[in-house]
Write a protein that binds this DNA or RNA. Structure first.
Lengths: 327, 327
DNA sequence: CTGAAAGCGCTTACAG
DNA sequence: CTGAAAGCGCTTACAG
């Protein structure tokens, strides 16, 4: 059996209350007792049971993180930063990959509540998750509106879409097409599309957006891209709403012998570390993933401290245009 | 306050024992009582506290996962599969990013033990982690030897290295250089290097390996690659031990106006989904990440069930050569 | 078929 | 400065 606090108490010849005190460094204890207790803990190889502590304290110092999937470089990087920052605050992370499926999101959320997490950071596309939302349960959403009361942290999608579109225009593109996710999802990413449409109109062009599903099915993405090329023979600029799609666009363009950037210019979105290494030639709008993580955690920690007023309901972090050879 | 089992009992007019029974579906209970209890749970919006259950059961159904960082596509994908498969077995995952730092690995491991995880899957480069290892505590290592008793799951690194080297030879490369991690780390990945060296020798060539640190510092990788090109002007084939390094090699080659594949052929390693999408032209050795995850979990679950004998101490899963335009 | 009691491993008033 | 007692929210023998 694992040694318990009583075993330590016995070994040190004190009461379990005293052991608990030195463990938590609370109250007055003589140095001698302290030393004895520490020695006993070492000797019997004692490791405190955080389950029991949490049960009493009603604080687990665990947060739940729901992302679509960490294999996607954006979410993988976000998960990395969120976990790292949490660790620096003494918080732990229960990881959940929802694959954008609402049924999974709901199950995960219930699981997290059963495990008494102190809060949840959620990157999800489905509002259904709100069924479980309780008044004053700490939740922060990344890049997606969940409800009126849940703070959202994201980057300046409108500015990103604007910069991307303006760059393509500036570079002389005449037929610029946009690829984005389903518009029904109420995500700030819709602002990328909005910006694209606004800028196009301002410049007397007709905006055309192709919608890809959010199923992570590469085959479907490829088919959509083929359709785009087939239907839009004059296309000379594409602004894709993420780098993976942009990469697929570039691959398909190569197949069709369209030379990048002379015949076709491509701009992606996200600018992850991995994207920068694997596809440095792609021009992209970089999101400040570390800042998004930091901000989301700051807000979540405030909620956990019970501060539900004065929360910034929407935080918009700056994006950076990174020009590569694809434009 | 959150409703407890006693609140349910009161609402349903039964004892807390009975509520517990319907919750766990154990023992005989009349259908009528069951219905009453379920109704009461719905009414007061009851969510069982898994902390309390775990405290009693001495089982949390949580496993710890220590990876270097999920922002790396290989580990991000591994984390995704591990978490997904765990979820299908009713297990949850506490995520830890060690950034390959031994001090963090140790802290994380202690944290996991305090949280009473049922087991740990660890992808780490440091044997120090074994300081905390207790007899019969469930641990599985991925791709790295931790101790004689800890099962390791990985892919066939020797075969991967062999296939990569043989391909470059077959394609006519005369000066093939290998890039790998520090040899001190006792990882099965050393076998990639061993295979490269063996095949080179068999073919009367002199193997030359450049070692990169495992610090995730891109700048250091770039510098090493520059050094390689400077020192090895005749190089016409490079086998890199992961796809990110291979990508950096290709980028540097481009800068130096070395045409791929005619003047330089490059083979990477890992073959992640993300790599396939962002850099499909890279020839690579693909690891079966989903299978690695599945196998590691199978073994871990056996350990959790107390089966520590007859464990496969080393599992070697098959790799696949994926030929792209870089060779 | 159902309930009262003890206990999982902790912490914190309350006394002394 | 230290300890006995109660309790966090559950589950499981043990009785009936």
């Amino acid at each position: 059996m694992k040694p318990s606090i009583d075993d330590v108490a016995e070994a040190a010849g004190v009461s379990r209350t005293t052991v608990s005190r030195v463990l938590n460094n609370r109250g007055y204890i003589s140095q001698k007792t302290k030393d004895n207790v520490y020695k006993a803990m070492k000797e019997i190889n004692y490791i405190p049971n955080d389950l029991a502590r949490s049960l009493f304290n009603k604080r687990t110092h665990i947060i739940g993180l729901i992302v679509p999937k960490t294999s996607n470089p954006f979410f993988g990087e976000l998960a990395f930063h969120i976990e790292s920052i949490c660790a620096s605050f003494g918080f732990k992370v229960l990881l959940c990959n929802s694959v954008n499926r609402m049924d999974k999101e709901e199950k995960y959320l219930e699981m997290l509540l059963r495990n008494q997490v102190d809060g949840v950071i959620v990157v999800t596309y489905n509002r259904g998750i709100m069924n479980y939302h309780r008044e004053n349960f700490p939740v922060v959403a990344v890049d997606h509106y969940l409800s009126e009361k849940i703070p959202v942290v994201g980057s300046d999608n409108y500015d990103g879409g604007k910069q991307a579109t303006e760059l393509l225009l500036k570079k002389g593109c005449r037929h610029i097409i946009h690829i984005n996710g389903p518009i029904e999802l109420e995500t700030p990413a819709n602002l990328r599309r909005k910006a694209y449409e606004d800028i196009m109109m301002e410049n007397g062009r007709t905006p055309i957006t192709y919608e890809v599903s959010n199923t992570f099915d590469q085959q479907i993405h490829r088919e959509l891209i083929c359709k785009l090329f087939d239907e839009q023979p004059e296309v000379d600029g594409i602004f894709a709403s993420d780098d993976l799609i942009a990469a697929s666009v570039m691959a398909e363009a190569k197949k069709r012998n369209k030379v990048i950037p002379s015949q076709l210019k491509v701009v992606g979105y996200d600018g992850t570390e991995t994207g920068q290494i694997l596809l440095p030639e792609l021009t992209t709008i970089q999101q400040p993933i570390d800042l998004i993580a930091k901000t989301a955690i700051d807000i979540l920690l405030k909620e956990i401290e019970g501060e539900f007023n004065d929360l910034p309901l929407e935080t918009c972090l700056p994006v950076t245009l990174i020009e590569g050879g694809s434009t």
